[in-house]
Design a binder for these strands. Structure first.
Lengths: 93, 93
DNA sequence: CCGAATGGTTTATAAAATAAACCAAATATC
DNA sequence: GATATTTGGTTTATTTTATAAACCATTCGG
């Protein structure tokens, strides 16, 4: 049985990647609402995905407020697709 | 996004359940080899699955050697199937 | 016998997830 | 126009989880 990429095999990080697979980009607030996570937890997990090179995180300003915009990178997309393939062998689908 | 049953969302426990979904029963040694886990880790995770009522664990003897036989319970089967359904919404499949 | 192998369990440690506390700036309140 | 509150986060502490290490009883092999 092949290993499940531990960086993706985490509910919150998987949820984030799953969302980013389907949109051009998503900001911190949107991800927080969609995943129903706390800000602290989301912040930590975004860092991990970013450090792994799976997502890009741009910190900018929207008017006068900070705005963090995330998007998936090609490596992130590849890692997710591989993860899904491995997972399928566990799920028998 | 629905929650992924944390008892099943663990590589080793998922691997064990996945195996047990496809066989009548499996013993400790077989599970250890198939999952390439350490005995200690497997022992702990089998306990958790057993305490959750997802598998039944029968400790008996095969000749003079101990033999632990595991099989999935109806609740375990149900939990796995639900887990797969939820996971599919994350994987877009 | 004595050392290694088998089939585990228990306990300690490392890693992960989560929560709590905090911070700066903006906005609303009185 | 001070001050309390909200927004959009980060950092640090705590809890939970996974993993590894140590151990134990029995058996087998020389």
């Amino acid at each position: 049985m092949k290993e499940l990429n531990p960086l993706l095999h985490s509910q919150l990080r998987l949820a984030v990647i799953s969302i980013l697979m389907n949109v051009e980009e998503a900001d911190f607030v949107y991800l927080k609402e969609k995943t129903e996570s706390t800000a602290g937890n989301l912040s930590v997990q975004l860092d991990k995905l970013s450090n792994a090179g799976y997502i890009s995180v741009e910190k900018g300003m929207s008017g006068k407020r900070p705005r963090t915009i995330c998007s998936i990178t090609p490596e992130g997309r590849k890692a997710f697709e591989e993860y899904v393939e491995v997972l399928k062998t566990y799920l028998n689908i």
